[in-house]
Computed example of a mutant assay.
Amino acid sequence: MPASFELFEPPLLSRADLDRADLVRKDPQRLIAGWPTARVLLIDQRGRYAVTDGGTLRWVPAADLGPEPVAGAVFLGVGQVDSWALRVDDLAPPVGEPRTGAHRLPADEAGLLATALGVLNWHRTAKFSPVDGRPLDLVQGGWLRRDPATGAEEYPRTDPAVIMVVHDGADRVLLGRQTVWPDRWFSTLAGFVEPGESLEQCVRREVLEEAGIRVHSPQYLGSQPWPFPRSLMLGFEAIGDPSEPLVLRDGELGEARWFHREEVLDALARDDDWGADAPDAPLMLPGSISIARGLITGWARAGGR
């Protein structure tokens, strides 16, 4: 069964056309040779990144940081020059916040930022061996941790999560508001995939757990990296019945509602996004950085207008 609609465009963080150059990562001499002409993106402990006055990425010359790759730096790929990222304690302004500023980045820069955040966030939690707590060395341009005694290797981890537009097959869509979100902020439902579970099983389980609705016909639509801290969001649609009572079972949602397509289209036309100055807006939608926005937009516009 094919999906009933498509995403109008790839999600923001999935549009990059990058040469990640994994073979270069594995060549220490090549990494050193490319460092003097390379560029480095600085990212602070909160995930904010250096930007220009125009909001695009602000790079620093790698040579300003030392004669060869510095400890903790992550190799991002090759282009006109090599690109790296490095976590620092403090950043000189101006800075960008990925959840609210990444939509201003060109596609390749958004992809580089997502990659940098994903690997740097993994660095924080993978400093020691999960077997015996021994400190691990960081090698391959920051993409691998290795036990110096045993040679055992730890690779960056990505956590799969499903995110889904639940609709009735006609003109109503189910959106939820987490308990910690302000009133009128709604989005699609989502949740992490459990061991031994398929993506389709996860879609059905998560909707039932969060909203008490039994859905069917889950269909995959697209994906997006979500480095907060290191997820991969797998977008689906699924069909539910609005006549079923909504039951917020697991306490994650503070509210769930079925919205008519016209309500969603009106919110899209007004750009009523989370955080926008729209005190009278009945529905506030997630920003364009999230695949949730793409899923909602794709479903709403598939019905015309």
Rank of each mutant, 00 (worst) to 15 (best):
G101P: 06
S198W: 06
P135N: 07
D82N: 01
L57S: 10
L31D: 06
D271L: 12
A170F: 14
H103K: 09
V51P: 02
G254L: 00
A281V: 13
I32M: 10
P61F: 06
T179G: 11
S14E: 06
V78C: 14
K127N: 12
V95N: 01
G254R: 03
G118W: 00
V119F: 01
T100S: 11
E9P: 03
T188W: 02
E252K: 15
R257P: 01
D89I: 09
V180K: 15
L65G: 04
A300G: 12
L144M: 13
R204W: 02
P245A: 12
T158F: 15
T179H: 14
P282W: 03
G133Y: 04
Q219D: 03
S217L: 09
Q140E: 15
V180W: 15
G222S: 06
A21S: 14
H167W: 08
P67V: 02
P2S: 13
E252C: 13
P227Y: 00
Q29D: 13
R184V: 10
D147S: 10
G254I: 06
E9F: 00
D280A: 14
A276I: 06
W181Y: 13
L18R: 03
S231A: 15
S198Y: 05
D183M: 14
V51C: 14
D53Q: 12
P160L: 05
P94I: 02
G304A: 08
I296W: 04
S14F: 04
R99E: 13
R172N: 01
L86R: 03
W143I: 01
L175Q: 06
L13I: 08
V139Q: 06
A161I: 02
L112A: 09
A116L: 04
D44N: 15
H103E: 15
Q29Y: 14
I239H: 08
T188D: 05
H260S: 12
G77W: 00
A62S: 14
D273I: 13
S288K: 12
L295M: 08
L23V: 12
D89F: 02
V203L: 01
A21Y: 05
A269F: 02
A278N: 04
S288T: 10
V247D: 15
R230N: 15
E6G: 11
V70M: 07
C202A: 15
M233W: 11
Q178D: 12
A3T: 00
E154G: 12
H103R: 11
W84Q: 03
M284E: 13
F75H: 07
D171G: 13
K26Q: 13
D280L: 05
W84V: 07
A62F: 05
S223D: 09
S223E: 10
G34K: 02
E109H: 07
V119A: 02
P135D: 09
A63C: 09
E200F: 08
P93L: 08
D280I: 04
T56A: 14
G222T: 07
G169F: 05
A300M: 04
A38I: 06
Q29E: 13
E194S: 15
G47M: 05
G169K: 02
